[in-house]
Structures are given as C-alpha cells and as structure tokens.
C-alpha cells in the first residue's frame, strides 16, 4: 500500500454495457461517423484524434486499470511507429501486417523495460519510464542511416488496406482505417478489462499486498499489463506512421507521454470512455487555443489541468456524478 489512493479510479459503474450491450460504444461510433460528415475538410485532424485515442486507451490500461504511474508511454508508441515505418519501407507495405509489427515492437519494448520498471514505484518508476523513452529517442536520433535521425523516417508508401482501399489525398481511407482499428482496440480492451486478468489488475491497483497474499503473481501481472499496453501503444504508433507516412523523433517525446496522461485524467481513468472523451476534448481545445498562440495554449491547459485535479478529481466523466453528489449533499470523505 505504498501508493496513496487515487480518487479518480474509485467509482467504477459497470452499467450501460450490461443492460444494452455496446450501446455506449455504438453511440461513440455514431459520433465519429457524424464527425466525418460534419468536418470533411478536417479528416487529417480527426484521424490524429482517433490515433491519439488508441494511444490514450493503452495508457488507461496501464495506468487506469493496473495503476502503473508512467510518464514514458511514448517509448512504445515510438517503437511501434519506427517498426511499422521500417517494415513498410524494407519488407512489406501491407497496412495490417504493419500494425502487427508495430504491436509486436511496442509489446517487446514494454516487456523488456517492464522487467525492470515493474520493480520500482513512485518517483523511481516515473524516472525510469521517462529514461527509457529518452534513450530510445536518442538511439533513433543517432541511428541516422536507418531512421533518418532528426530529419525523420521518410518514404513510407502503404499498399491499400486489405488490398482494397487505397490511401487517398483527402484522408478518407485513413479516417475509416483508424476508426476501425480504434473500435477493435476498444472492444478488445473492454473484454480484457472485464476478464479475470483485468479484474486482477484492478485488485493489484487497489492493494498489491492483498493480491499477493491471495497468490496473485503481482509482478508478472504488471509486466503482462505493461506489455499489453505497450502493444496497443505500438499499434497507435504504427497507425500514425502509416497514415502520416512519416516518423519523426517526436514520437518518443516526453511531451507526448505527458499530454496523453493529461488527456486520460481529463476524461477520467479506469473507464475506457474517459480516455476517448478526454482525448477528444484535449485535442479540440488544443486545436483552437494553440492555433492562436502556443504559450496561450499553455495558460489554457495549465489552468484546465489544475481545475480538473482540484475540483473534479474523477475526470470530466465524473462531472455528472460529482454534481449529483453535491446536490444530494452526501459528500464522499476524502483522505
């Protein structure tokens, strides 16, 4: 019980999914389809949001469910991006095969680094996770012959998705492709988090000591969760490489890890929807505020983060609950 309890993960309503199967998922899907028709000239931006949602979902599994506090999720995203990019250039430009390669690369990085990281806690874990991403970034920077270094990995030309849909200039194929992958990842995560494995992760999050006492191999479960999350982050990175046809050193950046964390907290951890909604809100606000002035954007995001942490600790998804609780007057005791 080293970690302080994190209020953001306390309430876990398992409603909706049980009563009308996949109703909320269908609603989100409908929203995505509607966005496609509402903003036909912003498909590139919408696709970036979808990819980011996959990445933040991977973080939700690692952090929201398993309780692994990391600031280095970009390590796996970047590994997936470079692996998929290199695979497409040198081996085979099939998108789906590239996703598999990206997932494998992300999972491999997470597995190897996880063997060390999952033994650490708190600040040490944060620092180690950052260090892994920084080392990979520097390796990619120095291996200029292979990765293009600071110029980025160029020359990615993908074949049609499933041999049918060609990537087009407007980004229609990219959008549907990313949306399909997001939907698959979401459903897969729904299944994983509801499985005995997912439940044991929640148990570990709440009390590692108790789970260890009832015979759960806590360390290996965490390594497995980290590797699984790494695989999904790798998918997100691969998707980004394929659709933007470019991989830059920024895929490993600390800013990417930190922003994903902010998106997740904005939406609320441990619920999957939180990752999706937080990402959409963050990216939309970023799109409008940063367009005006990047420093202005820091004012906005800094204030937003503080406001959420101080006033709606369960994330924006918890806002209705927080309001209801406020009006009922039954305040939850905070430690």
């Amino acid at each position: 019980m080293q970690d302080a309890p994190i209020p953001a993960t306390a309430p876990r309503p398992r409603s909706g999914g049980l009563r009308v199967p996949l109703l909320a998922e269908a609603l989100l899907l409908a929203l995505a389809v509607a966005a496609y028709f509402l903003f036909p000239y912003n498909l590139g931006f919408l696709t970036r949001i979808l990819i980011m949602m996959i990445f933040v979902l991977s973080l939700d599994l690692v952090l929201g469910f398993a309780g692994i506090t990391t600031l280095g999720q970009a390590a796996m995203y970047g590994a997936g991006a470079y692996a998929a990019g290199l695979f497409a250039i040198h081996v085979w430009a099939d998108p789906v095969a590239g996703l598999v390669v990206g997932a494998a690369a992300g999972a491999a990085v997470a597995l190897v680094s996880g063997l060390v990281l999952m033994r650490a806690h708190g600040l040490t874990l944060l620092m180690l996770s950052i260090a892994v991403a920084q080392v990979l970034q520097e390796v990619a920077n120095k291996a200029r012959d292979i990765t293009g270094g600071a110029d980025g990995l160029r020359g990615i030309r993908m074949e049609p998705v499933l041999g049918i849909w060609d990537f087009d200039f407007v980004g229609q194929t990219g959008f549907w492709y990313a949306l399909a992958v997001l939907a698959l990842v979401f459903v897969a995560l729904r299944l994983v988090t509801g499985s005995p494995f997912g439940l044991s992760l929640r148990g570990i999050h709440e009390s590692p000591a108790r789970m260890a006492a009832i015979g759960t191999p806590v360390y290996w479960r965490l390594v497995a969760a980290y590797a699984l999350g790494g695989g999904i982050a790798g998918v997100a990175g691969a998707l980004a490489a394929q659709i933007t046809m470019l991989v830059s050193l920024e895929v490993f950046s600390f800013a990417l890890s930190a922003e994903a964390l902010i998106m997740l907290i904005l939406g609320g951890t441990g619920r999957l929807y939180g990752a999706v909604i937080g990402t959409a809100i963050f990216m939309a606000v970023h799109h409008t505020a940063a367009a005006a002035d990047p420093f202005n954007w820091l004012f906005v995001i800094g204030g937003l983060v503080l406001a959420v942490i101080f006033f709606v600790p369960t994330g924006l998804l918890g806002l209705p609950t927080a309001l209801v609780r406020l009006f009922r007057g039954s305040r939850n005791g905070r430690p």
């Binding site: 506090t69 907290i265 420093f295 820091l298 004012f299 800094g302 204030g303 503080l306 942490i309 430690p335």
Partner: peptide
C-alpha cells in the same frame, strides 16, 4: 499544501499544470 494530500498521479498532473502556468507567465 492541497497537493500534498493528492495521490501521486494527481500530484504529477497538478504540478505539470503549475509548470505550464509558470512558462506561460514568464513568456507573457
């Protein structure tokens, strides 16, 4: 003094938020 009582994740985010505000303030 309020942040002391948060969980570590909330601390990370709240203090990143403060860092953002400092950067934006100096830049302003």
């Amino acid at each position: 003094r309020r942040i002391y009582r948060f969980g570590e994740l909330q601390q990370v985010l709240a203090t990143i938020g403060i860092a953002f505000l400092m950067i934006a303030g100096v830049n302003y």
